[in-house]
Computed example of a mutant assay.
Amino acid sequence: MRKWRNAVVTAAWVAVGTAAGALGAWQLASADGGGDAAHSRPLDEAAVRRALAGAAHSPPARRKTPPPAPPSHSSSPSAERSTVRFTGGSATVECRPDGTVRLVSWSPADGFHIDDDVERGPAPVVRLEAEPADDDAQEDLPYELRCTATGPRAKVVPDTDEED
């Protein structure tokens, strides 16, 4: 009885798999009826030219993706973003019309990491510290970033950590 049951279950699985394959093949065959399906025959050079000529005279396609999200409330509409590079990495900052700077993002250079103690602003000056991966090889590099008339600037400042 058990062998008979296993044979029926196996036959049922084979039948379901065969039916699924046949359904998929039928869908592919019926979808190609108009010749516009992605899996239809490749176009020859003359057909490509005709298609391009037709596309040049047709109205632009409607946008299918949603418009980009508006900027977050934390950035000023007239703030200018710039990337500043320095020995320990780089930072993207916003220079705001009121003269303040806001640290948007930062990335360490190879062999460095950015300390968790980041002052993002907005403020007249923002701060971050690039620390070498091998603490014995090089000193930490504390930076102040500010906006000037010529754009954002990063400057190494004396280390104010009191852990030493």
Results as ranks from 00 to 15, higher is better:
residue 1 M to S: 15
residue 1 M to F: 10
residue 1 M to V: 06
residue 1 M to Y: 09
residue 2 R to E: 06
residue 2 R to G: 11
residue 2 R to M: 02
residue 2 R to K: 05
residue 2 R to W: 03
residue 3 K to C: 04
residue 4 W to S: 08
residue 4 W to E: 10
residue 4 W to Q: 12
residue 5 R to H: 10
residue 6 N to L: 11
residue 6 N to H: 09
residue 6 N to F: 06
residue 7 A to M: 07
residue 7 A to N: 08
residue 8 V to Y: 04
residue 8 V to D: 07
residue 8 V to E: 14
residue 8 V to F: 05
residue 9 V to S: 09
residue 9 V to C: 07
residue 9 V to W: 08
residue 9 V to T: 14
residue 9 V to E: 13
residue 9 V to F: 12
residue 10 T to C: 06
residue 10 T to F: 07
residue 11 A to D: 03
residue 11 A to C: 12
residue 11 A to V: 07
residue 11 A to N: 06
residue 11 A to G: 14
residue 12 A to Q: 02
residue 12 A to S: 10
residue 13 W to M: 14
residue 13 W to L: 15
residue 13 W to V: 12
residue 13 W to N: 14
residue 14 V to S: 09
residue 14 V to G: 03
residue 14 V to Q: 07
residue 15 A to F: 06
residue 15 A to M: 11
residue 15 A to G: 12
residue 15 A to Y: 01
residue 16 V to W: 03
residue 16 V to I: 15
residue 16 V to D: 10
residue 16 V to L: 15
residue 17 G to R: 00
residue 17 G to M: 01
residue 17 G to V: 00
residue 18 T to Y: 09
residue 18 T to G: 15
residue 18 T to M: 13
residue 18 T to W: 11
residue 18 T to E: 04
residue 19 A to C: 01
residue 19 A to I: 03
residue 19 A to Q: 03
residue 19 A to E: 01
residue 19 A to R: 02
residue 19 A to K: 01
residue 20 A to P: 05
residue 20 A to S: 14
residue 20 A to L: 15
residue 20 A to M: 09
residue 20 A to N: 14
residue 21 G to R: 05
residue 21 G to Q: 04
residue 21 G to K: 02
residue 22 A to Y: 00
residue 23 L to E: 15
residue 23 L to V: 15
residue 23 L to Q: 15
residue 23 L to M: 15
residue 23 L to Y: 15
residue 23 L to K: 15
residue 24 G to H: 12
residue 24 G to A: 05
residue 24 G to Q: 12
residue 24 G to C: 08
residue 24 G to V: 02
residue 24 G to M: 03
residue 25 A to V: 05
residue 25 A to C: 02
residue 25 A to I: 03
residue 26 W to M: 11
residue 26 W to C: 01
residue 26 W to T: 09
residue 27 Q to D: 13
residue 27 Q to C: 08
residue 28 L to C: 03
residue 28 L to G: 12
residue 28 L to H: 08
residue 28 L to M: 11
residue 28 L to I: 09
residue 29 A to V: 07
residue 29 A to P: 00
residue 29 A to L: 07
residue 29 A to I: 05
residue 29 A to R: 13
residue 29 A to D: 08
residue 30 S to L: 02
residue 30 S to H: 13
residue 30 S to Q: 14
residue 30 S to G: 02
residue 30 S to N: 11
residue 31 A to Q: 12
residue 31 A to V: 04
residue 31 A to M: 06
residue 32 D to M: 14
residue 32 D to F: 00
residue 33 G to E: 08
residue 33 G to N: 07
residue 33 G to W: 04
residue 33 G to L: 01
residue 34 G to E: 07
residue 34 G to S: 14
residue 34 G to L: 11
residue 34 G to H: 00
residue 35 G to L: 01
residue 35 G to C: 06
residue 35 G to W: 01
residue 35 G to R: 08
residue 36 D to V: 08
residue 36 D to C: 02
residue 36 D to M: 07
residue 37 A to D: 10
residue 37 A to V: 01
residue 37 A to Y: 00
residue 37 A to G: 13
residue 37 A to T: 05
residue 38 A to C: 05
residue 38 A to G: 11
residue 38 A to M: 09
residue 38 A to F: 12
residue 39 H to M: 04
residue 39 H to S: 11
residue 39 H to D: 05
residue 39 H to L: 05
residue 39 H to E: 02
residue 39 H to I: 00
residue 39 H to F: 09
residue 40 S to Y: 03
residue 40 S to H: 08
residue 40 S to W: 00
residue 40 S to C: 05
residue 41 R to M: 02
residue 41 R to Y: 02
residue 41 R to C: 01
residue 41 R to I: 00
residue 41 R to A: 13
residue 41 R to K: 09
residue 41 R to E: 10
